[in-house]
Design a protein around this nucleic acid. Sequence first.
DNA 1: TGATGTTTGTGCCCAATTTCACAACAGTAA
DNA 2: TTACTGTTGTGAAATTGGGCACAAACATCA
Lengths: 206, 206
Amino acid sequence: MNKVPIPTLERLATYLTALIELNCRKIDTVSSSDIEQATGINAAQFRKDLSYFGEFGRPGIGYDVEELKARLARILKVEQAQRVLLVGAGNLGSALIGFPVLKAQNFHIVAVFDNNYNKIGRKLWDLEIRDIAELAEVNTELQAQIGIIAVPATAAQQVACKLVEAGVKAILNFAPAILRLPEDVVVRNVDFGQELAVLAFHLTES
Amino acid sequence: MNKVPIPTLERLATYLTALIELNCRKIDTVSSSDIEQATGINAAQFRKDLSYFGEFGRPGIGYDVEELKARLARILKVEQAQRVLLVGAGNLGSALIGFPVLKAQNFHIVAVFDNNYNKIGRKLWDLEIRDIAELAEVNTELQAQIGIIAVPATAAQQVACKLVEAGVKAILNFAPAILRLPEDVVVRNVDFGQELAVLAFHLTES
DNA sequence: TGATGTTTGTGCCCAATTTCACAACAGTAA
DNA sequence: TTACTGTTGTGAAATTGGGCACAAACATCA
Ligand SMILES: NC(=O)c1ccc[n+]([C@@H]2O[C@H](COP(=O)([O-])OP(=O)(O)OC[C@H]3O[C@@H](n4cnc5c(N)ncnc54)[C@H](O)[C@@H]3O)[C@@H](O)[C@H]2O)c1
Ligand SMILES: NC(=O)c1ccc[n+]([C@@H]2O[C@H](COP(=O)([O-])OP(=O)(O)OC[C@H]3O[C@@H](n4cnc5c(N)ncnc54)[C@H](O)[C@@H]3O)[C@@H](O)[C@H]2O)c1
C-alpha cells in the first residue's frame, strides 16, 4: 500500500466528488461502470485504483455509495475537516475564501495572512486578515498541516519557509516559482499559464 | 513531430517561463543543467523534450536564451497574443482578469461574459461584462480560439457548448464538471479540491 | 438446487514516459 | 596538431501506468 501512483490519487478525489453527488441524489449502490459514466474514467481503472487500498465492492452487486464515500474520505484524510492556512489576501486569495466547494470537500480555510498593513485587520468574508509575522504563533493553536500560497512569485519561497516553520507539511502553490523545501514537505504547483499553453499548442496557426 | 506527450508540453511551458525570467536577467546562454537548476526538471528530460521539435542547442556551448525562448513561444503558439474569452464574472473570473502574469505570457483576455443582469454592462477592471447571449456574435469579430469557464458546475456544460458554437477550439474549465464536447475541442480541467486531496493524502493522521 | 446473468479484483501484457549513457560536436590551451 | 573539458541529441533500457480479460463471487429466478 506504499506505492500508490499520483494519477491514482488524483482520480480518487474525482471519485469522491462524484460519490458525494450521487449520495445527495439518494443513490445507494453503484457499479464501476456507473462511475465511468459519471466521471469519464475507465471502469477497470476505477477498480484498479481501489485495489491499492483493499476490497470495497461486492461482485454481482457493486459498491455501497455511503461506505465507499466514507472509505475514500478516510484514505484522502478528509473524514474530518482539514484545516488550511492561506497566505496572500489578494485577488486569488479572496476568490479562494469565497469558494464554497472547498468546504464541501472538507477543506476549511481557518486563517488568512498577508504582509500589507493596509489589509491586516480587515475582514475577508468572515475571516480577519492576520499579520504574516504571527503565522507560526497562530498555528501552534490551529495545528493546520496544509498551506496555500497566493502571494507574488518573488515572495513565494520566503512564505513557503514560514509555513514549514509553522508546522505545515503540504503546500498548494499558485505562484509561478519552484519551491525548495525539506524532503518531507509535499508541494503541488498550480500554473494557469501552463494550462493555457498546453491548450494553445493544439490550436492551428491563428 | 506528431506525437508529443502531454507532460512534455506542460514542461515546455515551464521552460518558457524560466527563459523569460533568464532573459530579463540578461543571461544569454544556458546549458540544460542550468535549466534543471532553474526549473527542477531533469536536464536529460529537457533535452529529450526539445528533441521532439528539432535541434536547438550547440554541443559544448548550450542554448541561446533569446532564440530558444522565441522558438518555444512559436511552438506553443504564443509568439503573437492569444485572444481568450472568459465566461463567468464571479470571484474567480475577477481574479483571472486582474492577473498580469497571463498577459506577460501573451494570453490576453479580450472579453468577459455573464448571464446576471446586475453584472452585465458593469466594468471588471478595464473590460465591460457582456451578455452571454452575445457570445457568438462578439466572437465573429474577435476570433478568439481559447475560452475559460468560470461559472458554477451546473452551467458549465451549457456554457461550453456556447463557446464551441462561437468557434472556440480550446477550453480551460474551472468548474468541477466533466464536459462532453466534439473531438476536435481540447479541454483541460483545473480542480483545486483535487489538488488539495492529493496533498492531504500524504499527511499523517491528524 | 442449478442455471443464468452481473460485477468485482487482479494477473498479465502493452503503451507511454523517464532516465541512462554515450557518440558526436565545440571550444580551449599547449 | 593533440589532449582535455564541456555539452548536445538520441538510441536503448528501465520504469511507470493503463486496460484487457477472466476466474471467482454474488444475486435472481425457475
Ligand atoms: N489572480 C489570479 O487569478 C491568479 C491565478 C493564478 C496564479 N496566481 C498567482 O497567485 C499569486 C497571487 O496572485 P494575486 O492575483 O492574488 O496577487 P495580488 O497582488 O492580488 O495579491 C498578492 C497578495 O500577497 C500579499 N503579499 C505579498 N508579499 C507577501 C508576503 N511576503 N507575505 C504575505 N503576503 C504577501 C500582498 O499584500 C497581496 O495581498 C501570484 O503569485 C500569482 O501569480 C494568481
Ligand atoms: N472561487 C474560486 O476560488 C474557485 C476556484 C476553483 C474553481 N472555481 C470554480 O469556478 C467556478 C466559478 O467560481 P466563482 O467562485 O467565481 O463563482 P461565482 O458564483 O462567484 O461566479 C460565477 C459567475 O458565473 C455567472 N454565471 C452563472 N451561470 C452562468 C451562465 N449560464 N452563463 C454565464 N454566466 C453565468 C454568475 O452570474 C457569476 O457571476 C465554479 O464552478 C467554481 O467551482 C472557483
